[in-house]
Design a protein around this nucleic acid. Structure first.
Lengths: 140, 140
DNA sequence: TGAAATTAGTTGACTTGGAAAGCAAATTCA
DNA sequence: TGAATTTGCTTTCCAAGTCAACTAATTTCA
């Protein structure tokens, strides 16, 4: 039972990378038909949540470094999903806003992400899915 | 207790991405002083495990797509960590071998990875680290 | 006040990764 | 056997990410 096929199997960092890779690949396939990146979907969900976010806040929540977010937003702007608005209080800050197209697109994508989530949850015994999320969040 | 700061927090794919990001960043910092990528370390561990691996097998174990592995190996060859050997049975296959430098480097890096693993394990109650690995491996 | 320091976001040069095509060896089978 | 197919790995071209430098707005404090 402790027979290891892979010398890396006991490393948490490896188990995490393997799981992340496999989940990401599956999700990417699902999102392909929307012509959208996982990161772009995360950005849109954060924007939809209500509170105005600066690029910096958004970067943290969407798990992107600032330059990566900047460039992703450039693409999303030219796809008509979001637009930049200079914050009134601090003119250096940008508030990103969903366009109507962006909001519609987000809702469609959300369907597929939730399908994927359900598919993943089925791989676990009843409470293990929530437990996994709980354990994972201790790491970030 | 169910107050969500982040609208994405309940998605397994998000929890996984967040944990992966944070663990990867920490590990990358540790490995920086060896001038080595996490992926390169994974490759070296796989090679060290004994059985001769083709590029294809290695790619799977090290969690890389074949083109990415090819390119990484190019770099590792020019850093003197590994060398390519054409397999005798099938001339299309490559067996990758660790050089002495590569083996020494791997042992040094392994120290740091294990330090990092221990640091991570401390964030959990006794058995939760192993449980997490077990749950994660159901996903890949 | 206003010069110096800090902060927010973007840009540019460079590196890395992915999809698809390419090449060569091995296998299939008519 | 040998033409057609499949397999293993690499290359090419392009998309995307990083680090460090940059611009502009804000804050600090002498």
């Amino acid at each position: 039972m402790t027979t290891e096929l892979n010398p890396l199997g006991n490393h948490l960092s490896y188990a995490l990378a393997a799981a992340h890779r496999s989940v990401t690949q599956a999700l990417t396939v699902r999102l392909k038909k929307h012509g959208i990146q996982i990161e772009a979907w995360r950005v849109m969900e954060c924007l939809d949540a209500g509170t105005k976010l600066s690029m910096g806040e958004l970067a943290k929540q969407a798990l992107l470094n600032p330059p990566a977010l900047s460039k992703l937003v450039d693409r999303m702007v030219s796809d008509g999903l979001v637009h930049r608005q200079i914050a009134t209080a601090d003119q250096r800050q940008i508030n990103l806003l969903l366009t109507n197209l962006g909001r519609r697109r987000m809702l469609q994508v959300r369907q597929d992400v939730e399908d994927e989530d359900r598919a993943l949850a089925e791989q676990f015994d009843t409470k293990d899915g929530a437990l996994l999320i709980q354990l994972l969040s201790q790491l970030s």
